[in-house]
């Protein structure tokens, strides 16, 4: 009889016999060692001004059909590792609830600005919209609660372009997830194109894999090791998803980086613009606490983050304004979502 753990190890060994290349799932062109390019540090060449955009949120109240979220979206400007004076913050509370109209249910999101302009009109999306469904399940609030923040990030990125950013760096891939989100994204792309700016997104983690079943991470790292590149980039190609108008790369921006990151660059960017972007990214990814990750994104994350204490403060203010009986009813509804930890708290 075989030992199950031995069988697992056997499977792992097969998994670790990384291929020399292959076709990346979801992309059309094959990759191999020849596709990998070493990244060289720029000398006296100019680097572009990078604006990183990031958003943070924390839930204040949540029932199965209503969620109130405190959101903050922020962008900055960096030249290499040097932060420039210009930045902007938008802070708002979003309320998303399930409403009924003409015997159909919708997610309706409204925003209430706290700081900065109101960048969003109310959003209504059918509960059965495919962008919000998980399989055949619909009406999951957790899918909808980040909608307002995501839309606002696109809108604030537009303002960063207006403020003179040469490169917009979003946190995460440039994929759009919600109904009509691509329309907001397209507005940004159009504005960026008109201003000669470039829009990119950087993802810390990636699940991209090759059609032959091996993960991209590890396979490309091994290729780079064999080639002796301390920093590198590989073009994966254009995504086959119709809402995704980006060329996708996988890059390691610092020799001490723990891993490579997925880099999306909005379609249509010229070669020299991409080269400029890479020069800028290499110059701003030397933070000693996180080498290889662009410092403007770290900075944006810092200022966009909504802490628990902050959220608790707002929650308390809301509850303060409600009557005792209203609070009691609210608690009954919230309890329906708060049972996860009970079993763990029983110990054993």
């Amino acid at each position: 009889m075989h030992d199950p753990l031995d069988e697992i190890c056997e499977a792992l060994r097969r998994h670790l016999e990384l291929p020399a290349g292959g076709i990346v799932s979801g992309f059309s062109q094959p990759i191999g060692e020849d596709s990998l390019q070493g990244l060289h540090l720029s000398g006296a060449e100019e680097i572009p001004v990078i604006s990183a955009v990031d958003g943070g949120s924390n839930t204040l109240l949540r029932t199965p059909t209503l969620v109130v979220v405190l959101n903050r979206v922020y962008y900055n400007q960096f030249l290499g590792m040097r932060k420039m004076d210009h930045y902007e913050t938008v802070e708002f509370i979003s309320k998303t609830e399930i409403i009924e109209r003409d015997k159909r249910n919708f997610f309706r999101t409204e925003v209430f600005p706290l700081e900065g302009p109101c960048l969003l009109s109310p959003i209504e999306i059918d509960l059965k919209d495919e962008t919000l469904m998980v399989g055949t399940t619909y009406g999951d609030m957790s899918r909808a609660l980040s909608m307002a923040r995501r839309f606002c990030e696109w809108r604030l990125a537009e303002r960063a372009v207006e403020a003179g950013a040469e490169c917009i760096l979003m946190d995460g891939a440039l994929q759009t997830a919600f109904k009509d989100e691509h329309k907001v994204a397209n507005k940004l792309y159009d504005k960026a194109k008109g201003s000669g700016s470039i829009v990119a997104g950087l993802s810390k983690s990636t699940t991209i894999y090759l059609a032959n079943g091996f993960p991209l991470a590890g396979t490309v790292d091994e290729m780079a090791r064999r080639k002796g590149y301390p920093r590198w980039i590989i073009k994966l190609g254009e995504s086959e998803e119709w809402t995704h108008r980006a060329t996708v790369y996988y890059a390691k921006l610092h020799e001490m980086a723990d891993s490579g990151y997925r880099l999306d660059v909005f379609e249509g960017a010229k070669e020299e613009e991409v080269e400029g972007l890479l020069r800028g990214l290499l110059a701003c990814s030397t933070y000693f606490g996180y080498p290889g990750y662009p410092y403007p994104l770290i900075d944006a994350h810092t200022y966009a983050k909504v802490g628990q204490a902050e959220a608790d403060g707002f929650r308390a203010q809301i509850l303060d304004r409600l009557g005792w009986d209203e609070c009691r009813k609210l608690e009954l509804m919230e309890r329906a979502l708060m049972q996860h930890g009970v079993l763990d708290s029983l110990g054993g």
């Binding site: 590792m81 932060k83 030397t286 000693f288």
Partner: peptide, 27 residues
């Protein structure tokens, strides 16, 4: 762990291409 790695890198001259931003809020 990251601080120790970066400090070692700077100290040993393995990779001096690490920076401390002027107004780093994390240190």
């Amino acid at each position: 762990e990251r601080i120790l790695t970066s400090a070692g890198s700077i100290l040993e001259g393995v990779n001096p291409r690490l920076e401390f931003p002027e107004k780093d809020l994390r240190i």
